[in-house]
Simulated scan of single mutants.
Amino acid sequence: MAYRDEYAQGQGVQGDAARDRAAPDAAPGTPRRRLRRVLLPLALLAALGAGGREGYAWYTTGRFLVSTDDAYVQADIATLAAKVSGYLASVPVVNGQAVRAGDVIARIDDGDYRLALRAAEDKLATQRSTIARIARQVEAARAQVAQGEAQIEAARADQVRAAADYQRQTQLAQSEFAARARLEQAKADRDRSDANVKAAEAALLAAKANVAVLEAQGREAESLAAELRTGVDRAARDLSFTELRAPFDGVIGNKAVEAGAYVQPGSRVAALVPLDSVRVDANFKETQLARMRVGQPVHIRVDAWPDRDILGTVESFSPASGSVFSLLPPDNATGNFTKIVQRLPVRVKVPAEIAREGLLRPGLSVVAKVDTRGLGAEAPEPRAVSHAAAQRHAARE
């Protein structure tokens, strides 16, 4: 009993000490209580202010923004490939190097192609000599035609003289004033002159036919020369392909070969990226397209530079959703069907001055927000197609 009394007394003393220590803090006029009364309303006011600001921002701007993070920087990247076969003599570019249109990307050993061009030019020169020879032969044949025409005139003159002499000798023979032998001689001269005329006419026909044959040979030689000129142009074109040049301004990337490598037509050499003409391809859900139009402003935020707000414009809408252009388009005519929200690629134009900075690289992730407050120049493609279909339907009705 004495032990319990001593324990109770100890507990009572400790409780009084604890109350004495807590009493100053619990007093209504202490500084901590006053600070709490001040901070709590301030925190509530700050929360209300932040919420009001966010609500105002949503009401004035946010509710008009259509956003997607399924967007990427894109560009029309060209894969530079060899057009002729051969060993690479040099590749004077490196990855990341900026090049201008017409700069040499790679050179192929051109020895064989120069020889082929020279052989083609020699064949063409030989054929041109043949054409010149045939032209001279045509001139000679035409001279023979003129000679044959003159011979016909002479033969016909002899024919007229021989015919008159035969007629005169015939009359004299009937009057017995001429010898029989002289009449026979006049008759032979007449027959010979007739034969000479026929021979001259046949020679003239042969000369004209020879001219026609030579002219045909000339045309054939001209056609062959045209084929050889084509061969020369082809050989010169193949020779020009031994230098692979940049088709436009850009930056070299994904270089695949070095000097000494053997390439064939179609072998990839490098990729050329036109950084000054990049764009953004944003894939919006089909449920987000109702208020979107071409020409509306787009806020572009690149993940690589999150603090920079780039203002672009909606340039065009894809004519079909991305799934339609896939390798295996979906076939929904089945018994088990699950509706999936489709996405439509939307092309966003980047300002030229931003593109020329070279910071936007194809493949970078982008968050695109379309401001739908401004109606653009035209409706998106799906609406245009539907309107056209309605017009066709009305015309059929």
Rank of each mutant, 00 (worst) to 15 (best):
Y59A: 10
I252Y: 04
D76T: 07
V341I: 12
I108G: 02
D25Q: 10
G266M: 00
D309L: 15
R383I: 14
G335V: 04
G49A: 15
A18Q: 13
D109Y: 06
F177H: 13
P265Y: 00
L311I: 13
G52A: 12
V38L: 12
V370I: 13
G96K: 01
A352N: 07
E315F: 06
Q147C: 05
A162Y: 02
P247S: 06
G10I: 11
E149T: 01
V348H: 07
R133L: 12
A27E: 00
Y7V: 10
V298Y: 02
A200D: 00
Q137H: 09
D158M: 03
L327T: 11
G12P: 07
A119M: 12
W58K: 07
T287M: 01
V104K: 05
R168G: 01
R268Q: 11
V232E: 06
E227K: 15
A333G: 07
P329F: 04
Q11I: 14
V145K: 00
L205D: 07
V298I: 08
L364R: 04
A261M: 05
A27L: 01
A259N: 03
G12N: 12
S321G: 11
A23H: 06
A27H: 06
F241A: 10
Q167P: 00
P329A: 01
S67V: 13
L80Y: 01
A81C: 06
A379W: 07
R392I: 11
E54K: 13
P247I: 11
P362M: 00
A125V: 07
A22V: 08
N283E: 04
A389L: 14
E54T: 13
R396D: 09
M292T: 04
R142N: 10
R21M: 12
A150R: 05
Y262P: 06
A146M: 08
G52L: 07
N95G: 08
L172K: 06
E381T: 13
E353N: 15
T338H: 01
E121K: 13
L88R: 03
Y56S: 14
V294W: 05
E54R: 13
I108P: 00
L311V: 15
F177L: 15
G376P: 06
Q14H: 08
Q74P: 02
K255R: 11
A246W: 02
R383V: 15
V257H: 01
Y72I: 14
S326D: 03
A18S: 15
E139Q: 14
S277N: 12
A352M: 09
K255W: 05
D233R: 12
A8D: 14
R219Q: 10
I108K: 02
L364M: 15
G12C: 10
